[in-house]
Each structure stands twice: as C-alpha cells, then as structure tokens.
Simulated assay, not measured.
Amino acid sequence: MVPRRSWVEQIMGLPISVLARGDGAGSGPADAAVRAVFAELIEADRMFSPYKAGSAVSRLATGELNWDQVDPVVREVAERCVVARESTDGLFDADVPGGTWDPSGLVKGWAVERAGERLREVVDVDWCLNAGGDVLVVCPSGEPFTVGIQDPRDPGRVVASVSRTGGAVATSGTAARGAHLYDPRSGQPVVSRWLSVSVTGPSLEYADVLATAAFVAGDDWPTMLLPGYEGLGVLADGNLFTTAGWGRL
C-alpha cells in the first residue's frame, strides 16, 4: 500500500486539510512543507480577514489605513480582484454594498494556491490540499486523486466526483453559510434555484472566482466559465447539470 499521511488545522474559520501520498509522505521535508503552508495561510488570514480588527481589510474599512499605506501584497490582491471583476462581467466584485472592500471571494483560492507551491518542492509526494471544500491537487506521480462534490442538501453525501492529477476544484453556494453571496448588479443577496456550482480547472484562485460568479449568474452560470474550466451545478430538486467537458475529467 502506498504510504499516506494527513494534517488538519483550523484556519480562516474553516478546516484546512492536507493529504500526502507516496514514499516521502512521512518524511521531514513533507512535514516541513505542510507546516509552511499552514503558516502562510495563517498570515493571509491575519492580513485579509474582515473579521479581525487588526487586518488590513478591517483597517481600510475603518479608515485607519489608506491604500498608500498597505502592504504591497494587499495592493496585489486588489489588482487581482479588479481583473476578476472584469473577466466575470462584474459578477465577482470585491467592492461590497456599503462601500467597503472584501476580497474574501478571491483570497482563499489565491492564498491556498500560493501556499501550495511549498508542496511542489517535495517531488516524491502527491498532495491533496482541501480548504473547506476548495481543493488543490498536485500529483507528480501522475496518479489522480478523486475529489468528491458535496451534496448541498446533505453534507454527509457526495453528488458527483472528479479525478484530477493537478489543478483545482472549487464550490460556491448557500448550503453551508446561508445567503452570504450578493449580486453586484442589484446589491441584494443572491436568490437562485441552484444550490451550488462547482468549477474545476488549472487554477484554484480562478476556479473559486468563477464558481462565485457562476452561482451569482443563476441559470446562465455555464457562460461564466473561462476556457480550460468545467462546471457542475446542483439544483434545489437534486438534479445535476454539467458542462460538456466535465464528464471527460
């Protein structure tokens, strides 16, 4: 049996789990890489959480900081949010009702993908990094991981799965956190007959952004996906709809 090892930490208000598979899964370098991943995610949460009074996001909201005073990485994320808004025709927008800035819809995927580069340094290990249902896969062996898509009506079940040797899977919806997503076109919470939309593709940052924009788009969600990305939507009655390329994954 191929050696495996797993780690779990609570970061960003959600469980972050890492699964290692391969001869080096139990090695010191593998453990050090995972600890570095967790450290980077803790730092990203410290800087970007809208729930922490000392974060850059909170201090910008209160006027304690202005954009000339923030760390360059905050400006980088702000620029990425602008690109994401433009590439989704405004359905992803970090400028939220009330005039504040909340990049949470991009930061998790961006931070996990960036931290995941630490895992690539351990070349004899396959990795599956799961951040509250958003998944990054790195498989130098070429053997895929199977990623399950949670049933939004029953967290203990999966409605579908997708095999990945690399890249990402991200899901957006209201099952876990209620109506926390808003439609930038109206400024109102999203009301949809879709319970969730999952997106898979090469980048977790963009899979996460596209899943959010797709969920906001409602019945037009497949039109939000960029080339190289495929999606699966779950309707309130349990029926599934997939884009053409999903079944080939």
Rank of each mutant, 00 (worst) to 15 (best):
A214V: 09
V216E: 06
G218H: 14
A213D: 03
D219Q: 07
P222G: 06
S196K: 02
G178I: 11
Q188T: 07
F215D: 14
A213G: 08
S203K: 03
V197I: 11
V169P: 00
S161Y: 02
L195F: 07
P227A: 08
L225Q: 03
L225Y: 03
W221H: 02
V209M: 08
M224P: 11
A211F: 00
G218R: 05
R177G: 05
V158L: 11
S196Y: 01
R185K: 13
S161P: 11
D219I: 00
R193Y: 07
L181H: 14
V209A: 14
G178P: 06
L225R: 04
L181T: 09
T165F: 08
R177D: 13
E205W: 09
S186I: 10
P189N: 10
D154A: 12
A168K: 06
V169I: 08
A168R: 08
S186Y: 09
P155Y: 06
P202F: 10
A214S: 13
E230L: 03
A160P: 08
R157D: 02
A207W: 14
L226A: 14
S203Q: 03
E205K: 05
A160G: 03
S163D: 13
E230R: 01
G228L: 14
L204T: 02
G218I: 05
T223F: 15
D183C: 07
L226P: 15
F215N: 15
R193F: 05
L232E: 00
D183V: 08
S203V: 02
S198M: 03
P227C: 04
M224Y: 15
T200C: 04
T212W: 03
T212C: 07
S196E: 03
T174N: 15
P222K: 12
L210W: 12
Q188W: 11
V197T: 07
W194I: 06
G201M: 06
G187L: 04
A211R: 01
A214E: 11
A168D: 07
V162F: 03
D154G: 09
L226I: 05
T174Q: 15
L181Q: 12
W194N: 14
V191D: 07
R185P: 09
G156C: 08
L181D: 06
A168W: 01
L181F: 11
D220W: 15
A168P: 03
A213V: 09
P184Y: 08
M224T: 12
R193W: 13
S172D: 13
L181N: 10
A170Y: 12
V190A: 07
T174A: 15
E230I: 02
A176T: 15
W221M: 00
V199G: 01
A176W: 13
V190H: 05
M224W: 15
V162Y: 01
S161C: 12
S198H: 01
T200E: 00
R177H: 10
V191E: 10
A213W: 05
W221S: 01
T223Y: 11
D208L: 13
D219E: 14
A175L: 05
A217H: 14
T200N: 01
D208P: 06
A214M: 13
V209S: 10
V158W: 07
L195H: 12
L232K: 00
R164C: 02
V162P: 13
L181S: 15
S192D: 13
R164P: 04
P202E: 08
E230G: 02
T200R: 01
P184G: 10
T212I: 09
R153T: 09
